[in-house]
Design a binder for these strands. Structure first.
Lengths: 117, 117
DNA sequence: GCCGTACTACGACGGGTATCGTACAAGGGT
DNA sequence: ACCCTTGTACGATACCCGTCGTAGTACGGC
């Protein structure tokens, strides 16, 4: 072992390099939007395996990476698990109200489509 | 001539078929985001040729179609010109505050990058 | 040490898409 | 009628991306 707390490091963009276009692109995928909604609902850090997604584990890894590299989420290793958290503070500092608006929009759309069923 | 006002019809999604993912995807392209920002700044309908974009006319046509088919803008022919307008009412009814949040975020990001230059 | 769990890396594949060039259509002005 | 302006259609191209399967790594428990 080399370091005590973080054996495996994960690259995250610093706050000032988060690009709006990348964030919007990350949120425009249904699977990723669902991940973000789940994370917003449960306010704590969640492991990747918490999410029950309609794709394989490889694809899940891919989506989490897109979310991390776009600056939407933060990831940390904790043993074999990988904990995920929204970068709510960073996003709100850069783009005030954006994340909330997207989450509210997703909720509204979900309510509409469920109501129609 | 067949009809008096609209010789050439353009397909638009009705309000209830506008999908959040499609809107976010439409706004995640730099060229399209710039178009939307310009339209929001000038509150009136604008012809396609108003915009000074770093792509050819073919590509411009493509981007306007993506914006129209995702429900972000409305297009109408007026002679040889094609007038474009944001579907602000529809978007605000479906996703309250979303468009404003994206526009504010784009302004904030533009201010930051200009300030750094 | 061994195994199981959690996640990753890599390659492949199919579909989407941003871009262009060229050729074309529609409409207004002279 | 002619042309110019405005925008479209279509094909081509190169790239991106979502998906998968398989093989592999890291860590914790037994």
């Amino acid at each position: 072992m080399t370091t005590a707390t973080s054996p495996r490091a994960l690259e995250h963009p610093p706050r000032d390099r988060i690009r709006l276009e990348a964030v919007l692109h990350a949120l425009s995928d249904p699977v990723r939007l669902r991940i973000v909604r789940d994370m917003a609902r449960e306010a704590t850090e969640l492991s990747c395996s918490y999410f029950d997604l309609p794709v394989t584990k490889s694809t899940t890894t891919h989506h989490f990476r897109v979310l991390r590299e776009s600056g939407v989420i933060q990831q940390m290793y904790r043993g074999t698990a990988k904990l995920n958290a929204l970068r709510g503070e960073d996003l709100d500092a850069l783009f005030p109200g954006l994340l909330d608006a997207v989450l509210a929009a997703a909720d509204a759309q979900a309510a509409r489509t469920e109501g129609a069923a």
